[in-house]
């Protein structure tokens, strides 16, 4: 049997000694569109960053298709939060999307016609061909988000990690993004998407991870996205956990 796309064992992540994620045990099924849902500070972004090795693990391990991440990088596409970069940076939309091809290209080699074709095709699938030569600052928020999406597409991955791709986008972009994500799922890709709008979770996704510093629940929408679980994720009972984390940070 093939190993699952993502398998997390006993993972704990801490910033400055303050635990952000506690003892996460999680297995993601293949070919699903998975929402990561939870209140602010629940560790949704940290979950993605920990899987991608961007933040160190305090304990536990992460495996992608049964192997550690550093062996499976080529299978991964990543869409960071839009606010995480400087959109005044002197590059065009096409430049940014080309970056998606660099992982495969390897060190010191220059992007050629093949990479440009890949990048243009990615731009086309998010409807941004017209804006290829625009400086990224001259794009609207939704268009910038599409550029990030196109860059991940250019990575031609098996598993995509997307941090709030719907944040601050217009209705048209949201609609186009959802259909694109669903298309990718139909092609057998696994997508893990941090999502902040509870209203649309049921409509857009087929699998959900409810997170609030620890894993509250994970599973298919029908059985997992229940009022009871949402209450457990967003309700007050877990503030004890946050207080405990604070105590650890203060070190007493």
């Amino acid at each position: 049997m093939q190993a699952p796309p993502v398998e997390i064992h006993d993972m704990t992540v801490a910033y400055h000694r303050k635990p952000v994620l506690w003892d996460i045990d999680l297995t993601l099924p293949k070919g699903r569109l998975i929402a990561v849902v939870g209140p602010n500070g629940a560790g949704k972004t940290t979950l993605i960053k920990a899987i991608l090795g961007l933040v160190p693990l305090a304990s536990g391990k992460v495996e992608l298709y049964g192997q550690p991440f550093h062996r499976q990088r080529h299978l991964v596409g990543y869409v960071p939060q839009r606010e995480s970069v400087d959109w005044d940076f002197p590059v065009t939309a096409l430049d940014v999307v080309l970056m998606g091809t660099y992982g495969r290209l390897g060190w010191f080699r220059r992007a050629g016609a093949a990479e440009r074709d890949t990048a243009m095709a990615s731009l086309e699938s998010v409807g941004m061909t017209r804006f290829a030569d625009r400086q990224i600052r001259q794009l609207s928020g939704g268009q910038q988000q599409r550029v990030f999406l196109a860059r991940a597409l250019a990575q031609n991955a098996q598993i995509y990690f997307m941090d709030e791709p719907f944040s601050g986008v217009d209705a048209a972009t949201e609609h186009a993004t959802v259909s694109l994500l669903q298309e990718l799922r139909s092609a057998g890709k696994t997508l893990l998407v941090v999502h902040h709008d509870l209203q649309t979770v049921r409509e857009y996704f087929d699998h959900v991870i409810l997170l609030n510093m620890r894993l509250v629940a994970a599973g298919p929408i029908e059985t997992t996205f229940t009022d009871e679980n949402l209450q457990a994720t967003y309700g007050g009972r877990l503030t004890v956990l946050a207080e405990a984390a604070e105590a650890v940070r203060l070190g007493d």
Binding site: L52, H70, Y78, F89, W107, R110
Partner: peptide
């Protein structure tokens, strides 16, 4: 000249560059 695309990518989006290994 040799590391042009690496430096460009890293300068723009360090996390993404990190995720590429």
């Amino acid at each position: 000249a040799i590391c042009f695309k690496e430096l460009k990518t890293y300068s723009f989006d360090a996390d993404f560059a990190h995720s590429l290994g």
